[in-house]
Design a protein around this nucleic acid. Sequence first.
DNA 1: ATGCACTCTCTTCACGTGCT
DNA 2: AGCACGTGAAGAGAGTGCAT
Length: 321
Amino acid sequence: MQMLHETSLSAVDLNLLVVLRALLTERHVTRAAERIGLSQSATSHALSRLRELYGDPLLVRRGRALVLTPRAERLLPTLERGLSDLKAAIDGEPEFEPGTARRRFTLGMADYLQAVVLGPLLRAVQSAAPHVDLNVVSAPDLEEQIAAGNMDLGLQVSGRHAGTLQNQSLFDDDFVCLVRRGHPRIAKRLTIQSYLAARHVVVAPSGTSGSLVDTELAARGLERRVALRVSNFLVAPIVVAETDFLSTMPQRLGVKLAERYGLRALPPPIELPRFGFAMLWHQRLELEPAQRWLRELVTEVSGELFGSKLPPKKRRSVSAR
DNA sequence: ATGCACTCTCTTCACGTGCT
DNA sequence: AGCACGTGAAGAGAGTGCAT
């Protein structure tokens, strides 16, 4: 037989590793044989084959006892881990136990969603799975990252992805307009005239121009003055608080930011289409217990936060939840 | 699919060796 | 002397490769 480092797995009788584990833990051929249900002679022969396989005596006599060689000492933990993994591979995937599980999930979502979802999600994770940690990244190439296996789950605007990823709708959102209190040209209500007259700060995470709002305005033959384009949703309210700029943004975040920065949140002067958010994941993670737990938790948190649907449109006032 | 030869592993048995 | 490991021979059983 060849030395181990020159062979492939197929050339090795993996049952020998079971014998080896018994030998290394018992340090006694007869007891190892009893443990694995072989005769002493067969176990001794197996030890011979293992010695040839490893090119190392593995167990050497010291008086009446057998002691491990340094190679065998180093081998034992690897052997234990490997056989344990093999057993798990045969027995099947163990259930995910959130109460005791130690692992880190990587989630991808824009800063808007981070601001809205992360707080409640972290509280839910901490409560159900105290040893689970999160990495949250704002990746422009979300779907590629998920497909490449770099992310467990991604959240983004529904209907945007055209790939083969699995997806599930989470919640809908509307638009809201933010202006500072005491804005000189915008009174209680936001009219189309004052909307078009204002300077706008637009959030374009991908850096691209044009948005759903501009498309709707263009359909009516209208155009707004986009005086500032930023890539981060959390910058917009600061600009609005310190200038006479106006920002049109997702309502759920907008209302939250209006409270934080002392801004006014007003309904848009024209009907804008509602949009939704969904979570995306790779097909290969569909049945993985830990992934299923994570998706169920995100769904649950989204449901508790927003319900499945917003109230009917045509609201004339916008309030914080 | 079947039969045959070959290989491998295990078992039993016997015996040698080293240690207490 | 007794115990435990190592080695070898012989036979049984299972798996494999190959020819038919």
